[in-house]
Structures are given as C-alpha cells and as structure tokens.
Design a protein around this nucleic acid. Structure first.
Lengths: 148, 148
DNA sequence: CGCGATTGAATTGTGTGCAATTTATCTGAC
DNA sequence: GTCAGATAAATTGCACACAATTCAATCGCG
C-alpha cells in the first residue's frame, strides 16, 4: 500500500524565505553603499537612531531596534573605538549607559544623506510601492512579535 | 547665520529597517516553532530545499539559498552531526560534495509539515496578502541583487 | 534601615553571514 | 602529457543575533 506523503512545503512558496532573502539582499546592497563610511548595516541603523535623538540609553536603543545588550554592547564599543559615539554612565542611575554622538559622529550624517535614495533606486519600485511595502512589513512584524 | 542641516533619514521611514525588523521577527517566531525539531531557521531552509530535491551539491544549495560555502559548510556539518544528512564527494568530480538525506532527515519532514501554516497564522495576514507580499519581496530581492 | 527582588549592561557561548584565503581537483591550450 | 588557469569546498577572521548567565546598582516592602 502506497504511503501518502505529507506535502513538502516548497522553498520558493514560503513568505519567510522571500523575506529572509530580500533582507539579506538589502543588507548586501548597503554593504557597498556604507563602505565609504566604514559602517556595517546594523551600525548604520544605530547611527540613524542617534541622529534622530541623542543621548539615549542602551536599553532605549534596544527597544527601538529590537536588539538586546548582547548585540548592542560590542557594536557600541566598536562605534566608540571608531570615534563616533561616547559611552558614559548616567549619574542619576549608574546602571544605565548613555550613548551620545561625538563631533565626528554628528558630522558623518552629511555623508550618509544620499544613501536611502540610492537604495530606493536599487529596488526598482516607485515611492508609493515602497511606502506600502514598508507599512505592510511593519504590521507583519508587529503581529509576529505579538504571537511570540 | 543658521546652518541648514541635511535632513536626517528617520529610522522608521526606512524600508530597509522594516524589512530587517520583520525578517528578524519571523526568524524569532520560527525559533519557537522549530525548537521541537532541534533546527535553526537556516538549517530548516536547507532541509526544505533537500525535501524538495536531493541529492544536491553544496554549490547548488548555495545558488538556491544565496548562501556561500563559508556559511553552508559548517551548517551542513552540524546537520550531519545531527544525523539528518550525508555528505560525500561526487565520484565523477571529486571537487564537489553532494548532500543527501538520511532516513532520519527524510522522516523529519512529517514533523515539519504544520509549521508554515502556524507561521502564516502568526502574521495576521490572509493568504492573498501573504502571496502578494511574497511576490513583491522576490521582485525586490532580484532587483537589489541585480544592482550589486 | 535592611534585604530580597528587579533592572540595566556586560559577558559567554553558539550559530549564522560574508569577505578573503587556502587546498584539492579539474580543464584546456600547447 | 604538462602546466596555467578555473572551479568547488573548506577554512579563517570579523561582525552580528540571541539565549543564558553574571554583576552592579536600584527599588520596594516590611
């Protein structure tokens, strides 16, 4: 008697693989765009957050980027070593570490302004499609995180 | 005279951050779903590819998943250690390594069948929206890879 | 005040990703 | 047949991610 095989999920049919693959493709594109700034992609995201508001504590940064101290601590040390940020304990609560930009860190912002446009151009999508995609992805991420 | 600052790109406005964040959220959800199978998410993707077709060489696997040998070699060694795959040189070309499933690797497929449905449920999207999103992401990944 | 519980970072350990190098094998021009 | 160049994996080195643990500082409750 023949066995009825359970249908194997096909790789290319999985939303997860499309997402994983697209995310890595984008990171790869950023690698090239960020090479002149000597930043990795996660480091760039941290700098984006700091250009928006600083100083911030490590945990605020973690909430914002959904990253924990195991990732952020060494990353921030490397940014400090590169002379882009300062790290100092908050006097009113010595447990917290506040991150602020150095002059060099602030200045780097100018060199980074054109990058998002370059990346959008690489996607082959118009701005409308990008905005729609972005909002769908944010919703999805929120829902998935809520499920965990 | 006031300096006109270049507008800092806002973190939440970036498609790249939404993608990065959504991808990590999905990977995190998979972590829980795959825990009973003792597989990481990239290992699961490799198993998906093998359940679809095997044996395959390491480079075929790399083309499929857009991963290089630096990532795949150690990953495949772990799958071999777990008793899920076999690795053997191709007799007709001793440079290539062919990966095939063991009995245990084939059997694991049954335990994995329900996972995609569970994940789709976590996204809060209906099947139509998921399919549309998947196709958009595949297009985007292709375009971005072409730009590099 | 005292002390157990909590919180915020840092550290440790494992597993990716990816660039660059290395090693073994194969191919093709001669 | 031989050797230069190409090819396939593996290895090395670095930078994330994230679970789990550790450590110091703070909080809260009696």
């Amino acid at each position: 008697m023949p066995t009825i095989d359970a249908p194997a999920p096909l790789l290319d049919e999985q939303i997860c693989f499309a997402l994983y693959s697209a995310s890595r493709a984008i990171t790869g594109r950023y690698r090239a765009l960020l090479e002149p700034l000597q930043l990795t992609y996660p480091q760039y995201l941290v700098m984006l957050a700091l250009w928006e508001r600083e100083p911030v504590t490590v945990s605020e940064l973690g909430d914002r980027l959904h990253l924990d101290s195991g990732t952020l601590s060494p990353l921030l040390k490397r940014l400090e070593l590169a002379g882009l940020v300062d790290r100092h304990r908050v006097p009113s609560d010595e447990r917290s570490v506040e991150i602020s930009l150095t002059a060099a860190g602030g200045a780097l912002r100018e060199k980074a302004t054109g990058i998002p446009e370059l990346l959008c151009a690489s996607t082959g999508l118009d701005l409308d499609a990008i905005v729609r995609l972005r909002d769908e992805l944010s919703l999805l991420a929120g829902a998935v995180r809520a499920a965990s």
